[in-house]
């Protein structure tokens, strides 16, 4: 197996909930990320899916060190980068870049495209000597399929898809090894999404990049990912390769999520067996005891109230082997047929 470029262990981020304006008193915590473990291997794409508010973007920000973790460790090529600061942090940051969801607000409207893409060189002057920068920026524009002559234009002169390309070009500027993509195509029209996905796949091969790809469109995640982690209320509840997750999910939440995805095939309408989950997602300030999914789970038993199921290969499934034997945080993990997403 390829080398792990990133190892995440027991990652936690709690945001304090306070009351009072002058004398702030902590009355609880939003447990946005609540114990996340995974590896990212060289050259692979790890997809992360889950409902709004489950902590995906917070994980991304922690990996970028834009937020300080409450607990846990992040290792980049074996080196613990969790507590780095100053110069050492700067050096690591070169290797981990991010592409954001919203191509309309993530680019500074008063900067030219050339300045936006070249900005990382200001922070890391060693990456490109001053005289070289303009040419480098033009190369980057070319790489992402934009006309290098557009270098002096402003973001508002571009469409959403083109702006997302600008964001990708900026992400590539420092030759990073890892790119974290937080919903990179969600804001784009269907006919433009495929263009950007193709671009990202091409760049990955060309530059041997490792991707963390966060999205809520399960069929796009399936298309681009080698492995997929499913998050619920701050934790990964199931983790496996694309086939294991989509064809052999064993966690009830993954099963419900997949069954809820509308399939673009009217012939499949009658055949579908949909799991409609009861109720709403609990607040991350008030996470249920035991298994955090139990309040919406149709399989929940007493054990689910008292014991936290670990993210591990369930022993019963390990014995049987095959694709169902992968990490699943459920006391009663088992396969169930559900309609696959996307054709």
């Amino acid at each position: 197996m390829a080398e792990a470029v990133l190892q995440v262990r027991g990652l936690v981020k709690h945001f304090p909930l306070t009351r009072g304006i002058v004398f702030k008193k902590q009355i609880g915590a939003v447990r946005a990320v609540d114990g996340v473990d995974f590896d990212l291997f060289q050259g692979e794409t790890l997809g992360i899916v889950g409902e709004s508010g489950c902590g995906k973007s917070t994980v991304a920000k922690l990996l970028m060190r834009l937020e300080e973790p409450t607990a846990g460790r992040i290792l980049f090529k074996g080196e613990d980068i969790t507590r780095l600061s100053g110069k050492a942090l700067k050096a690591v940051r070169r290797n981990i870049q991010m592409v954001f969801q919203d191509p309309y607000t993530s680019l500074n409207p008063r900067m030219t495209v050339g300045d936006i893409i070249g900005e990382p060189f200001e922070i890391h002057p060693e990456a490109a000597p001053k005289g070289d920068r303009r040419r480098k920026v033009q190369d980057l524009l070319d790489v992402v399929g934009l006309n290098p002559e557009y270098i002096n234009r402003y973001p508002h002169q571009f469409s959403g898809g083109q702006r997302q390309r600008i964001g990708i070009a900026r992400g590539l500027a420092l030759n990073p090894e890892i790119i974290i993509c937080d919903e990179p195509v969600s804001a784009l029209d269907v006919s433009v999404q495929a263009q950007v996905i193709n671009l990202m796949t091409r760049l990955q091969k060309e530059f041997d990049l490792s991707y963390i790809f966060i999205a809520h469109d399960l069929s796009i995640v399936r298309h681009i990912s080698d492995r997929v982690g499913v998050m619920y209320l701050g934790r990964i509840v199931e983790l496996g390769n694309e086939e294991q997750i989509y064809e052999h999910p064993t966690h009830p939440y993954t099963q419900a999520l997949l069954s809820a995805v509308p399939v673009p095939d009217p012939e499949a309408r009658e055949r579908r067996e949909r799991i409609i989950l009861a109720g709403d997602v609990p607040s991350p300030a008030n996470i249920p005891s035991g298994c955090r999914f139990r309040t919406r789970c149709w399989k929940a038993q007493d054990k689910c109230v008292t014991e936290v199921p670990p993210l591990a290969v369930p022993p019963a499934l390990r014995e049987v082997g095959g694709p169902a034997a992968h990490e699943s945080a459920c006391h009663f993990a088992a396969e169930r047929d559900c309609a696959p997403a996307g054709g």
């Binding site: 898809g161 029209d189 495929a194 263009q195 996905i197 069929s219 694309e242 696959p340 996307g342």
Partner: peptide
Amino acid sequence: LLDSIPRLDQKGQELYAIKGLP
């Protein structure tokens, strides 16, 4: 539009993409 939906048998390949912009 229909061709640009990711299909299982196309995994790892280029997606069909309508060129250009509206």
